[in-house]
């Protein structure tokens, strides 16, 4: 018995030694990494739950990108903490271009809200900004509030009566809510959900009174008559829902924060080799350009953007400045945007 164990241990040790040397000269240089990329599956991490806009866009885009890049794109949802779980996860993976973050605008606020240390600016590099959209304020079809003024007045008269469903701190609804509370002095109670899908479900079930989601996520329900969109957070009505008034119609004072809205983008770890990043950007650019995907975007009510490089970085920066300062001025943030050198957007 003892002897047997000894033999086994020897086998294992020998095997381990043999491998050590193998590994040492198995090193490959950077150029090889780029030319052989991708040699395995690429993980696409979606920062929101199933059924939300980020999810739908990611899952529609994935197969087209797969054809372009010649490797499988395995999409996974890692929802929670306003996307910070997914953001942290992608940041923790090696910067080899095999883990991509499919995300929305939320990480722009992680630092000021003290949710996470991560930010798009310091930890990631955009592969592509796919599309942008607008936020809509929605209520259920049987809600007593026919327009935004009625809702805001009700929230002023009975503070903390109406429940506003959010998707966690720093999510789209929480910024819209900050806008309503800061500028219009209305007060709501908030209940957070895992994403736009779950919060829409909660609104359908009457668990929350009002919420704000991307126009695209609500469109189907608005068309079917289940939801009523009281306003779209923009300075003019949008093409996909021309009957919905712009928020500035009733409250022009919101105008100074606009244009502002959610966007959908793909990011990679900041230290991703340039060659790999170029390959990815190229693949996504071509994929987003296909008529097929454009049709999906149109179906979703999202606006085609497809920008990358410096243009994309500037776009994300501008969005961060608007959101962070708006929340800060509403007293919603834990820390001042100044601490993180987030520039304030000057009013034009």
């Amino acid at each position: 018995m003892k002897k047997n164990i000894l033999i086994i241990i020897i086998i294992f040790v020998l095997a381990a030694c043999g491998s050590e040397t193998e590994n040492a000269d198995g090193q490959v240089d950077n150029e090889d990494v780029t030319s052989s990329y991708p040699e395995k599956n690429i993980d696409g991490i979606i920062m929101w739950g199933e059924g939300g806009a980020t999810d739908i866009i990611g899952r529609t885009l994935a197969p087209i990108v797969e054809d372009e890049i010649g490797s499988s794109l395995v999409m996974q949802n890692k929802a929670g903490a306003a996307g910070a779980i997914a953001t942290q996860y992608v940041y923790d993976q090696s910067a080899d271009g095999y883990t991509l973050l499919f995300g929305a605008e939320n990480p722009n606020l992680y630092q000021v809200l003290d949710i996470s240390e991560r930010s798009y600016q310091e930890d990631f590099v955009p592969v592509s900004i796919i599309a942008n959209s607008f936020a809509g304020i929605i209520v259920k079809e049987d809600s007593p509030y026919e327009n935004l003024e009625e809702l805001v007045d009700a929230a002023k008269e009975n503070p903390n009566e109406l429940i506003f469903g959010t998707t966690g701190e720093g999510g789209l609804p929480s910024v819209v809510l900050a806008m309503l509370q800061n500028e219009l002095k209305s007060e709501f109670r908030t209940v957070p959900y895992e994403g736009e899908g779950p919060v829409s479900t909660a609104l359908l079930g009457g668990e929350v009174d009002v919420t704000s989601v991307t126009v695209s996520a609500a469109q189907e329900y608005v068309e079917s008559g289940d939801f009523r969109m009281l306003a779209v957070v923009n300075d003019e009505p949008i093409d996909s829902l021309p009957d919905v008034p712009a928020i500035t119609d009733a409250y022009p004072e919101i105008g100074k924060y606009l244009p502002w809205g959610p966007f959908q983008a793909v990011f990679a770890h900041k230290d991703t080799p340039t060659g790999v990043l170029e390959k990815l950007t190229e693949a996504f650019e071509t994929a987003i350009e296909t008529d097929e995907f454009k049709e999906t975007l149109a179906n979703l009510g999202m606006e085609y953007m497809n920008i990358s490089g410096q243009e994309a970085i500037d776009f994300v920066d501008q969005n961060r400045s608007t959101s962070a300062w708006m929340l800060y001025e509403a007293g919603e943030t834990e820390k001042s945007p100044e601490e993180f050198n987030i520039p304030k957007v000057e009013e034009e």
């Binding site: 739908i56 529609t60 197969p63 999409m75 189907e220 329900y221 068309e223 079917s224 179906n299």
Partner: peptide, 18 residues
């Protein structure tokens, strides 16, 4: 079923109340 949603979208359908 979340993946089924993706499948429907990919094939040009809009899963929703309609």
């Amino acid at each position: 079923t979340a993946i089924f949603i993706g499948a429907l979208f990919i094939h040009g359908l809009q899963p929703g109340p309609l």
